[in-house]
Design a protein around this nucleic acid. Structure first.
Lengths: 232, 232, 232, 232
DNA sequence: TATGAATGAGCGTTCATTCAT
DNA sequence: TATGAATGAACGCTCATTCAT
């Protein structure tokens, strides 16, 4: 036996993605959830079919129902599991914040980094979000409630920053948290689901947010720019 | 005029919405487009059916196809028509801007006001947006291109502000335009499609944006908060 | 011209049943209902598929849903339409009853005759009956209520017979009506859906019922056979 | 025996029905058959699932197939086992009949009593009957043959009654047996599966049958009521 | 004996689309 | 211009059955 022409392992060259998942001996149940995150993320709820998920996972489509009941429940499970992963990461990455503003900064940075490290699966969160199309009216409230966990975490840092002097004390807590979150979501969506290419967007998002919260920002604004008659 | 055969009041009390549209003698073609905007806005692309649109417009469903060909084309037409209306309004409302920053402010305010004045139909734009679910991969590029008109209008004010000294000259033009737009979109979505109730959000959005663009904002940020290793 | 070998009409020899229905220029909506009665009657609710109904009617299966909504509603419509036909016939055939007992006799005879004259479609009533499998729990009450029309018609003749002296006055009205109906149903089911062959059953059913209602019947029964401890 | 480690009471308060079956140390194989009778009886063949049977029996659903092969065979086994129980009871309860008519009476009474004493499981016989929906065309003949055992037992008493003078000698044996059975089946179905409430039905059924078989019944019927042109 | 993971045929249903009128 | 009958691809889902453990 010589090593020249014999493959060392009988590696199966055109390994499909589905086969790959089985190859890693990822349990089928896990493979299905993972595939669901990818496919829902890529196509959204309606356009995704159970067959697509099953095929990507390399299993019979009946198995998807076996483990996750139905499409709606699979979608919610896929989305919520992603939220839980994200929250765990955010909580870990922001635990050493030196101030409220620093916490906000770490929060935004970690969030954006998390999306980069979960390129394939993160978009499921964009679909399973109260800011997205309401294709599951029945689950609207549950999703919204779950998402509040993210926004409240952000709001807590705003409050802390207003107490420790790192954030402009005049800002309304809740509104500010929503606006920061808007910037995060906007940056992520622009990068992940639009065809636009805005290379510096993630880095600039952090600066944009920090500037708006900083204590000096307001002082330089000419008076006529301040009032607004807008009412929701 | 005699009272003989005239009904005293021609009030038709239980007038359905569909009937109302015909009543105003709105041409059927227009009624269909208007209904399409409402229904697509409320339910999204996939969930909307041609029958829903026809019923809301009070016409036979065959007529929808007769005028607009197919669902996809109806959707695009409904969305683009909304964009065009929006752009016209924005262009008109911002023509008296005193400076770049003032232009940004007017832009944001007018945008938000526009959504309030088109509560029923505006959501079609949320669905027909490159930042939303890509349920029509074939039209993704066209939609994205159309939307750039909005973002470029915003970017033009940023540039002008950096030239006239009303906006921090160090900000990257494109990224900043996208971030401002994030705040607009976030505020609108929060108000129109989430179950959250954040009463001061629209007014605060204007201030949040203006603060971040103002020339003094950056100076108050401690150095360690500035750098960011984030790369898209 | 001679009639010997030329077909008078270009009759299409292997005419399928479906084609035949179209041939008679029976409207498609009617053809579907008729086919539904046949197929539901032959196979029961669960075993029948929409495809079977559509094929027998010679139409695309989508048209079934177009006209009748869904399987359940098609089933109910098919069954109730048969009940209505039956009731109309019974009411017509019994209008000349000379007495209550004669009315019962005419009722039973007409009922049995009706089943013979609707051999293909009548069995739908056997399936869509409160005495049959409850495969549509949701419709159980409605079906039961509809069927009472039949039983009440019978009961009215029993009452009349007790008043005019043709029927044993000691019989309990309601129970007797149910028992007569049992004999009808039993005879029809035996003939139409079991493999048994009991040639004289229909004729004997009439006699069996009439004997049990007659005024002399009870007198000949030895006392020890009368009491019964049965309680429902 | 010491009390140290023994729980004072091994009471397991919220015992589910499934758990109860295991508790009685009913062998699992028996528990499955019993559950099958209940579930098939309640829901019919098509609507019943193997999982429902397994759950009610408190066993893994694989075990059902392990013992009974497939759904069809489980159904037949469940139904035939009920027929065998019924026949044994009838044969025992009618063995002291004083005459043919008395035998018929005992037969009907015992049959009705049996259904009352097997409220939960008897309905399986209603489903697995040639007079019911033919959802198992393949087994139609076998079921019909098995059921003949019941009808023939009845017919034997009719014959005996005609010989011993307790039953009208002019009645056709087979038809009469079928008609008596119609009354039994009708009473049972009315009570067990319809929503009707007819309290005296069981007791009246016995009298209704006996009257119709009695020797005096026919004499009181006016001639014009006798003939019938009905042919099956 | 006992389990439940895994499969896929077949179901009811939805709905965009076409077309004769 | 306006209608709605008619079609059938494609969907989510159920569930009997098989089989490795």
């Amino acid at each position: 036996m010589n090593g020249k022409s014999m493959p060392l392992t009988e590696s199966n060259p055109p390994l499909t993605e589905a086969a790959a998942k089985q190859e890693n001996s990822m349990p089928k149940k896990t493979a299905i959830l993972h595939s669901a995150q990818e496919v829902f993320g890529q196509h959204g709820y309606s356009t995704t079919t159970m067959k697509m998920v099953a095929e990507k996972a390399g299993v019979a489509f009946g198995l998807v129902a076996h483990y996750y009941g139905n499409k709606e429940s699979l979608f919610i499970t896929a989305g919520f599991s992603m939220i839980d992963d994200l929250l765990a990461t955010l909580s870990h990455k922001t635990r050493k914040a030196r101030s409220g503003l620093d916490g906000v900064r770490l929060f935004v940075e970690s969030y954006l980094t998390f999306t980069q490290e979960h390129r394939r699966t993160f978009p499921v969160l964009i679909r399973c979000s109260p800011f997205s199309d309401v294709e599951l009216p029945a689950e609207r409230e549950r999703i919204a409630e779950k998402f509040l966990e993210i926004i409240h975490a952000l709001q807590a840092f705003v409050r802390r920053g207003q107490q420790d002097g790192s954030i402009n004390p005049e800002l309304p807590e809740a509104e500010t948290a929503f606006l920061i979150y808007s910037n995060i979501v906007g940056a992520v969506r622009t990068t992940m689901i639009t065809p636009y290419n805005v290379p510096g967007l993630y880095a600039e998002t952090v600066r944009y947010v920090v500037r708006s919260l900083s204590v000096a920002a307001e002082s330089s604004i000419p008076p006529f720019l301040r009032p607004s008659s807008l009412v929701d």
